[in-house]
Every structure is written in structure tokens, then in C-alpha cells.
Simulated assay, not measured.
Amino acid sequence: MNGDFGFYLSGGLLLLACLLKLPALIRARGRDWLLSSICALLLVGAGVLLTAAPSSIVFLNRVTGVTNIAAVSVYILLTSFSGASIVLVLNWRGGPDVKQTRRLSRITIAIYGTCCVVIAGLFWLGNADVEQISKFDSYYATTPFIREMIVLYVLAHAAASLTASRLCWRWSHEVRGTLRTGLRVVAVGYLMHYAGYDPAVMGAVAARWTGANCDFLIDIARATTAPSAVLVSVGFIIPLLGPRSEEAVRYWQLAPLARAVRPVQGAPSPVTLSIPWWKPNLRLRLTQRQTYISDRIVICRDYFDIRIRNEARAAALAGKATEEAAAVIAEAAMIAAAVELHRSTNGQNSLPPRPAEPARAAFSRDLAHISRALRSPIVKDISRRTRTETAGA
């Protein structure tokens, strides 16, 4: 069972990812080729890993009563995975000519579908009556029809892996962010197929053709199966999760600033919508938090003091901060001081006196940057000093 764990764990993760996408696929009713391609890749990839586990191989052979039926099942699934990979990359990248993308996708499906049929036919014509759990490729490397079946699936897999890897790597130079990260993870995963699995299998098979024995190469090939399949699938998922993860990070980054402006009175109560826990709409929550902060900063804008900003900036530069970092710290200090000044008046704008008009300033930095800058000792010192001064006024 120890040899099965990696296969079952990796296959289970891919199957779970496919099930999570299933509701969206049902709603799309087959109209979304990209989503259909993703689900197909995840489902077939899970099938490859779950079927290739040694215990699964023995189980399939026993249940069906057909010796080595598990081997041909894995080869058909792996060939299907190869075709699904190219179809997914084609639809993922897309292009101005949707019809051309659909045409290439159908051609790819037809070619790899034909390969699957031929693999099944060659297995039926050949003679593989000795069960092989892990060394099927090398054991039957010289058997008529079975030999051709092995070569066909390896070549189909290698062609798809090389094509998908090159397409993803070249495309990654044209994009940024999580899409670029995902593409490069996919490219590495396919490279492991092309440079690891396929040469190892062909090396073991070719060795048998010459009368040598390099069966250890089969073990190397099997060792790359699970990690490479997971890398490919995770690489496709990363860009889908990217926007959500970025929203979650930004929501978390704004938390210190939301707490800092909480004492401000007079801002309109935010309109909060009930969001079920099983539907974590991060975009809506982020919008609510940004609105909450912005409304309170607007209330305090009459207390923005350019003298405080200049003081904080000078202190930051003296502490060897960069110009950009000093500017963010300065605006964070100005906002923190304005909140303290506003709180001291209970929102009545009576005490202490507001700065003269020329001394007022506006802030222009990103809220998340300002939120992070609240941790600066300079900001904390100015905020604390302003609180003491207003308390004694």
C-alpha cells in the first residue's frame, strides 16, 4: 500500500479539483470550451494516477478477468491526458479567431481519440497473457502488436508534452502575474513528462530490443508520473485562483487601516450584505472594507496637515528609507494624526483648531501601502504624540 499512497493522494486531489468545477460546468452546459477542457484534464489526470497505482492494477486485472487490462487502460488514459493537454492550452490562450481554435481542438481530439482506439486494437491483437504490475513496457518490448502499442502511446505522449511545454513557456513571456506563474509551472510539469517519463520508458524498451536489461528506467519513469501530473494540473488552476488570492491578500492587508479609522464618527454606516460562509465573496468583502476606510478618511480630510506629512517624510529619509517608502510613511502618519485630531473633537470640529488652509494636504497613495506603513515607528510616534497633545488641550 505504501507504493499506492502517492498515486492515490495525487489522483484524489485532482479529482477533488474537478468536482469543485463540476457545478460551473453543469451551468455552462457545454458552451464553455475552456472550462470543459479544464475539467477533462483534471478528470483524466485523476484517472491516470488512480489507475496506475499497483493495487489498482491488480484489482482491475482480477475484476475484469483480462490479464494486463489495467496496463492498456493506463495507456489510453495517458494518451487522453496528452490530447486534453493540447486542447486546454489551445482554448486557454484563445485568440481572435474562435472558429480556428475550435477547429484545432476538434482535430486534436480526433487524432488522440484515434490513437486511443488503435492502442486498444493493438492490445487485442497482441498476446500479453503474463501479468506485469510495474514492468509491462520492458517485459513486452519485443512482443508483436504490444510493442507497437507501447511505442505509439509513448510517442503520442511525448509529442503532446513537448508541444504543450513550448506553447506555455513562450506564452509566459507575454503575460504577467499568476497567469505567468501558472504557465511556467505547467511548462515544467510537461517538461518532466517529455524529459523524464518518455525517455525513461523508451530507454528501457530499446534496451530490450538490443538484448540488454535496463528495467530500472521503468521505476524512474513511474517516479515522475505523480509529481509531473500534479504540477501540470496545479499550473492550470493557479491563474483561476489568482484573482481570488490577490483579493484575499489585499483584504488582509487593509485590516490595520480599517482598525485605525474605526474611531472616526460621522461616516455613513456601511451597507453590509449577508454572505453565506460557503460563498466567500472576497471581491464584495474587499469592496465593503475599502468603502468603510475611504468614508472615514473623507471625514478626516480637513485635519490632513502637510506639516505632519513633511515631518514624517524627513524622519523616514533620515532612517535610510527610499523616497517611495518615505512618501507612504508620511501619508500614513498624516492620516493617523488626522484620526486622532478628529476623535479628540468627537466629530464637532471644535478642538483643536484645524490647520490653516495652505497647510492642508490630500493623500494619494494606495490604501494597502498606507495600511502596511502604520507599523512604522515613525507613524506610531506621531500618532501617540498627537493623542497626548489633544488630551492635554
Rank of each mutant, 00 (worst) to 15 (best):
D366P: 08
V234T: 01
A321P: 13
H193I: 06
L9G: 05
V298R: 02
A160G: 04
L77E: 00
L16E: 00
S274I: 12
G83I: 01
A52W: 02
L49Q: 00
W92Q: 07
I370D: 07
E331Q: 08
S383F: 08
L367E: 11
F123K: 01
R180L: 04
Y140M: 00
M149G: 08
S80T: 05
W277C: 11
V58W: 09
R296C: 01
A326L: 03
V117H: 04
S245L: 13
P23D: 07
E246I: 02
R375Q: 15
L317G: 03
L240K: 00
N349G: 10
S105A: 14
A120I: 01
N213C: 06
P280H: 07
A226T: 03
S85P: 10
H342L: 01
T64C: 05
R27G: 09
R147M: 15
S294W: 13
G3L: 13
A195V: 03
A70V: 02
R313A: 11
E148I: 01
A314V: 05
R365Y: 08
D381G: 11
W33V: 13
V271F: 12
V201A: 06
T114Y: 08
F363Y: 15
T114R: 02
L42V: 00
I57Y: 02
C39V: 04
A267N: 00
P263K: 01
P96R: 14
K135G: 08
S73A: 14
V58C: 08
D97S: 09
R62E: 15
E131N: 09
